[in-house]
């Protein structure tokens, strides 16, 4: 082996193709893991379907929904809560990714990702994109089943116009999960996340009831709902499914996605983040 050269080693950086290869690899692995975990897919679908077929069907005649944007006519209650259930699928998927990252960190798999020479922000963003992609697959499977229940957008374009909203909300919930995964020290603590993040976010939102109705009952709760990012994800999806854009929700969901991702990147930064302070 030749060892005779005095030339200094020059940094070579990474090409765009190498970044693309890395992104594809991370998304591919996430998809493979998802396919191998059939229970995860089934449970991701069963949860919103139970809400749709039992809860919404039961309350259909009790809870009428007046004409509120984006709807230009009265809609059935199960049509109203569908965007909330879609957001719930994505929220649970984000938390599932968070659980998976905590598990991977405890088991050591996370190290494989973090010792990649590509920038850490890119690795985490790729992981986020991978998680959001899986959540979108789940949402379309749910929408397919809901279609048989006669829940559908006013035109078929709704299935396309909802996609950008799903991407953005999927990224926001994924980033939230990633941030939480950096803060959760042990797998056992994850149950606390269920109690203190998922359920309050879901119930204190416009997923189940229109905000004007909440305001009638409790102005304070309506305020909580209005500042809850989950509410804005629901409204972004609701408007997009009806072929419209809710600009306020777009700004809030986009801003929160950037904020949560930025915080997660800092938390996973080896020189600044929370991992630094952990022994082991």
């Amino acid at each position: 082996m030749s060892v005779q050269s005095a030339a200094p080693v020059e940094p070579r950086g990474f090409s765009l193709v190498q970044y693309a290869v890395c992104l594809k690899g991370i998304v591919w692995r996430e998809a493979l893991r998802f396919l191998h975990q059939r229970e995860r897919f089934v449970s991701a679908l069963v949860r919103p379907l139970v809400w749709l077929f039992i809860f919404a069907a039961g309350f259909r005649s009790v809870l009428g929904v007046s004409i509120i944007p984006p709807y230009d006519t009265y809609v059935l209650y199960d049509v109203y809560i569908t965007p909330g259930l879609i957001a719930m699928i994505q929220l649970f998927n984000g938390m599932q990714s968070s659980l998976s990252m905590v598990y991977d960190r405890e088991m050591g798999n996370m190290r494989t990702l973090l010792v990649s020479p590509l920038p850490r922000w890119f690795l985490l963003t790729s992981k986020l994109v991978a998680g959001a992609s899986v959540s979108i697959l789940q949402v379309y499977a749910f929408l397919l089943i809901a279609w048989f229940w006669e829940i559908e957008p006013p035109t078929l374009w709704g299935y396309l116009t909802i996609l950008p909203a799903l991407i953005l909300s999927g990224l926001m919930f994924g980033a939230l999960g990633m941030l939480l995964s950096s803060l959760i020290r042990q797998l056992e603590n994850f149950a606390g996340v269920m109690n203190f993040v998922i359920f309050p976010m879901f119930f204190a939102s416009s997923a189940l009831y229109p905000l004007w109705r909440v305001r009638e009952g409790s102005p304070w709760l309506a305020f909580v709902c209005e500042i809850n990012p989950f509410t804005h994800a629901v409204e972004l999806i609701r408007f997009a499914f009806w072929g419209q854009v809710n600009l306020t929700s777009l700004a809030v969901v986009g801003g929160c996605a950037a904020l949560f991702l930025g915080a997660a990147i800092i938390a996973y930064d080896p020189s600044r983040g929370m991992l630094m302070r952990r022994e082991g």
Binding site: C22, G25, I26, R29, R33, M107, G108, N109
Partner: peptide
Amino acid sequence: FQARTLDLDLSIAQNLAYHAALHGIG
């Protein structure tokens, strides 16, 4: 690493392909 870091649900080929992708190898 000291801890096992292979993804147990993936094949050997898939584990290696994932590692290669993390290094930008096609």
